[in-house]
Design a binder for these strands. Structure first.
Lengths: 200, 200
DNA sequence: ATGATAATAGACCGGTCGGTCAAGTCAAGG
DNA sequence: CCTTGACTTGACCGACCGGTCTATTATCAT
């Protein structure tokens, strides 16, 4: 195993977990180094700054996310409605598992970072927007398909997809605040009731 | 004018603005003191710790909020649907005004703080939950009234009200990430399409 | 006027922050 | 064997963190 990649990915994984469970500002580089069993010098060999590390963490998580349960949820073999249900379920089980282990619901890393730093760092904000955009597109494609198959009436699929993403982030926010993953289960299914009409 | 209250409220107002526009961790006490033209000794005369200040800020904002546009939006003389529209409009204009002045959308202070600290401070988390609960109750009362007047079909008003609050927080989150208040205007009206049926 | 108390001033504390740097280890290529 | 360059080590930096402390000033009831 290449020790370069190993060290780098160890830093990345540790930082990701810590940023997700706490916050960007609350986690120090020394703490990340301790957690990853790495010295400061090695850290700065791989990452020019804490900020660059955070951006790498976003990329890393976005990659895992896109190839993980988002890919599963938006499987084209599933019916559109099933995809939405799958997405909600996946969010629930993920948060539930995290809470069972850590005792706390970490929420959505992207949402957390967006609220913490988007007023101070336009580059990271743009990065997070790209992630949100990708997720929105998954919703939109699903809706387009459903409309085309006459499973749903005509609507503004772009706006409705964005609304669904917002709702998903909103229920995760509220669930995190209550530290109760069940909130996702109870509120989640209503994502299917959201609809924004085409403007005419 | 009583100098006690004046100093205290100056600290409070400065901290509130800074916490809202940036984050809890990113704003230091020295910076707050400078902004409020107060010395550190005075600060610690009025607030035992930064954490206590933050809790006072939450109370302060919650008070202004409840007696301000939330009270206006949920005016019982308005039709239920009008109240929801008013709430969305108010959120939009507030964020728009803030962006026009500061260049950045601060988002919702409660949502921001909830995501930043609810994994680390259960007392503050409870305080934020209380604020969210009050907002949810405003929605629920509105829905109950609408259902009673046969303006809306029977539904789980408690769950739907929570869903509406989540959606509101979600669109503010997304709008903040895009630094674009218009997102609130475009997605907001769909809050009226949310519905969670009574379980039977 | 005096004594008690509230408020202000600002130096100071240990600790931690993100980040730098010189010195060294080590494996691959010539 | 020697050089090169990626990687690691850990001491070190100034700045700033939240918070403490002593001294001083302003306010007020007696």
């Amino acid at each position: 195993m290449n020790p370069d990649i190993d060290t780098r990915s160890r830093i990345l994984a540790t930082a990701r977990e810590m940023f997700h469970g706490r916050s960007y500002a609350d986690v120090g580089i020394q703490e990340i180094c301790d957690g990853a069993r790495v010295q400061k010098g090695s850290f700065y060999h791989f990452f020019p700054s804490k900020r660059d590390l955070a951006m790498a963490v976003i990329d890393d998580m976005a990659g895992d996310w896109a190839h993980g349960f988002v890919a599963e949820a938006f499987d084209r073999n599933l019916l559109p409605v099933e995809r939405l249900d799958y997405m909600i379920d996946a969010a629930y089980y993920w948060q539930k598992a995290a809470k069972d282990i850590e005792g706390r619901m970490p929420g959505c890393l992207f949402g957390n970072l967006a609220l913490e730093i988007s007023t101070r760092d336009d580059v990271m904000r743009a990065k997070l927007n790209a992630v949100f955009d990708k997720a929105k597109d998954k919703f939109r494609i699903t809706l387009d398909e459903a409309v085309l198959a006459r499973a749903l009436p005509a609507m503004d699929t772009e706006a409705t997809a964005t609304a669904m993403l917002a709702y998903l982030e909103g229920i995760i926010l509220l669930a995190k605040s209550r530290n109760d993953p069940d909130v996702i289960l109870r509120l989640g299914p209503a994502i299917k009731t959201l609809r924004i009409e085409l403007k005419h």
